[in-house]
Design a protein around this nucleic acid. Structure first.
Ligand code: MN
Ligand code: MN
Ligand code: ZN
Ligand code: ZN
Lengths: 138, 138
DNA sequence: ATCATACTTGCAACACCGTTGCATTTATAA
DNA sequence: TTATAAATGCAACGGTGTTGCAAGTATGAT
């Protein structure tokens, strides 16, 4: 059985509220990463600060992860893996379409190992592939 | 023989001015990527807008490239390769040290090929490795 | 060397966004 | 039901990208 929005929020130490439930639903149904603006548009009127804090809380609790695709506009996507409190575990390639400007998580793409010179220590790696997505071919 | 700052600027279609020459020198002598603030500090008083436009011009003319290391603070580094007017050709790994917060270009690190699903078209790829740089080991 | 012209610089101004404080409202559990 | 802690809405501040415009400067021609 599906776990409800309420359950998921409680399981991550967040009080379920109408806004949070809806935001969680939006991420759950999204096939691409969502910027603040796109989330705001789904509400009659929502305070941008409230949304800001909602996203911050979601990120801290491991419900979503923030994606910097190089556009300067932060986007967010749900964490499929179980991410611990404040520590994200997933490392996957992100794709940014230069045509439709959508950013998606490519969870199944093989994540390469980068051979860093001796002396350097790798903690985590961010990879963004820019190009044309499958929906944007003529 | 070394090409002077004046020469380089002229060769890239930019009028040599005191500010531009100094900015170019700073990039030329830097061993890491430089954020606006760090550049500003090297001047007695420089208008942030002038610096902004200088960096924009340098980037457009292929003198420097902008690096988004995920911190939200843009940094710039000189283009070693010859980058065409408005079109950068170099693709290399960037390293961001979580300790000293410096970002460096790893031009010699092998750039991996990412196997994107069919239907996708790759234009360019951005890779940022986060960790601890060689100078930050105990 | 002088000068007209185009480019560069400095300053004001605006928009956007991240962030925080605080008062009010809402969720939770006693 | 009620006391308490948390979430929300609003104001406000700071940083920064961006543009317009006037004044200063580099350049090439005279
Ligand atoms: Mn992702
Ligand atoms: Mn670089
Ligand atoms: Zn697309
Ligand atoms: Zn370091």
């Amino acid at each position: 059985m599906e776990s409800t929005a309420k359950d998921t929020l409680r399981n991550h130490g967040l009080r379920p509220t109408p806004i949070r439930e809806k935001v969680w639903e939006l991420f759950n149904n999204a096939s691409k990463a969502l910027p603040n603006k796109e989330l705001e548009m789904q509400f009659e009127n929502i305070d941008r600060i409230t949304l800001y804090r909602t996203l911050k809380a979601f990120e801290e609790k491991g419900l979503i992860h923030k994606i910097d695709d190089g556009t300067g506009v932060p986007k967010y996507a749900s964490c499929h893996d179980d991410c611990a409190d404040g520590h994200h575990q997933h490392e996957h390639v992100h794709f940014h379409c230069l045509n439709c400007l959508s950013t998606t998580c490519l969870e199944d793409v093989q994540f390469p190992k980068i051979d860093i010179p001796p002396g350097y220590l790798t903690e985590n790696t961010s990879i963004v592939v820019n190009g044309r997505c499958a929906n944007c071919q003529n």
